[in-house]
Design a protein around this nucleic acid. Structure first.
Lengths: 216, 216
DNA sequence: ACCTGAACACCGTTCAAGT
DNA sequence: ACCTGAACACCGTTCAAGT
């Protein structure tokens, strides 16, 4: 936190992101963000109209971190790279996904990102209808996967076995299919939930590729 | 709001859902929820340990509204019904999705729901690995689609044409692909973003069906 | 037992005052 | 111009007091 320099909208939003990474979205108060900059809450209002605007900027900040896809590359390659980057970024800043729902107006970074994705598909010869199709399915998968990864009882990764029993209680009776499913997965030493991302994405890209060949 | 009756955890969470539906998650304060019940903030603490627990209950409340799938029916039919119900419910209570990210411990309604979904797949002969595959991909798609629907510049529905120009400003220069894409979509009178849900879901279910035939 | 008023440490925001 | 202290109406929560 490079403190005591001149305030600016960008510095304020960076500070807000740092606060959110450390303490979650609930910790992002005008006073906390100002403190992160060795400043006072009221000083922020000279660079940001109000907290809602700060949060708009914070949501967009996350999309600024995602690599822009390259329309010159083959579409499948760009889509895979973008999805992978988006997953990494949103996984590192999970508060960003929670902001989307209540923030219908996309910021410039999000729009620029969408523009480039549509650019990739357009340059590859996708019709508008098929591009929408591809875009919305891939996007939904990426957003949803990150969300799922944070909340699925078998998604946790390290020590997930013990975690389930602890978290949910002795609940094999209440949730027999989950219990059986978990046991079967744990018996398979090669299974890792994180691998589901690449698998699911490939599944979707295969289907899109087939559709594209059928009706370019 | 059936007011002045005896307080209970269930009545409190129902009231919280009503407040959230009306004013968004930000409106859900202990004082507002109590007022919805013609009561006082402090009275809630006799039925709920604190606000975080109330929010846990609220997140789970949403999953209680989603139709449970029937393991006796063909798996594709149950998955489609469940996804459709989940989309409708989460679309009507969009604040629920925003809560998932910060609430890693699933509630009983969510677990029961997951258990039944895994039950459908298990009864249909899916291996644990393939069931995880199907589950996480479908779930991700549903969550992500609802999220996307609320924030995509071409997703808005009625009056979306004008909305884009208003929302984003005269930005065809900044976002040429979005502008071209939009124009092409609007020229196609048969296009509706809402249709993308069924299309994307079918695409995923087709792919799962193919995988299942290859390695049951 | 269940409910509630007053009180405390917070929060976003306004406004007047400082430089 | 940029920053900030005091003040206002909120917020979650504790505690003592009511029934």
């Amino acid at each position: 936190m490079a403190a005591r320099a001149r305030l600016s909208r960008d510095r304020i939003i960076d500070a807000a992101a740092a606060v959110a990474d450390r303490g979650g979205l609930a910790a992002v108060s005008m006073r906390n963000v100002a403190a992160e900059l060795d400043s006072e809450a009221m000083s922020l209002y000279h660079h940001v109209p109000n907290k809602e605007a700060l949060l708009d900027g914070l949501a967009d900040w996350a999309f600024l971190q995602i690599d822009l896809p390259d329309p010159a590359k083959p579409w499948r390659e760009s889509m895979t790279a973008r999805a992978t980057s988006a997953r990494a970024v949103l996984g590192s800043h999970p508060w960003a996904l929670g902001m989307l729902e209540s923030r219908p107006k996309p910021g410039p970074a999000l729009l620029r990102h969408h523009d480039r994705v549509l650019g990739c598909l357009s340059e590859a010869g996708f019709s508008a209808a098929l591009a929408t199709h591809a875009f919305s399915t891939i996007d939904a998968f990426v957003y949803g996967f990150v969300l799922t990864e944070a909340s699925l009882p078998f998604a946790a990764g390290e020590g997930a076995e013990a975690a389930f029993a602890d978290e949910v209680g002795a609940s094999a009776d209440d949730y027999p299919y989950i219990a059986a499913h978990r046991a079967e997965l744990l018996a398979d030493k090669t299974f890792a939930f994180a691998d589901e991302f690449a698998a699911g994405l490939d599944l979707i890209l295969d289907a899109i590729e087939a559709q594209r060949r059928a009706a370019p």
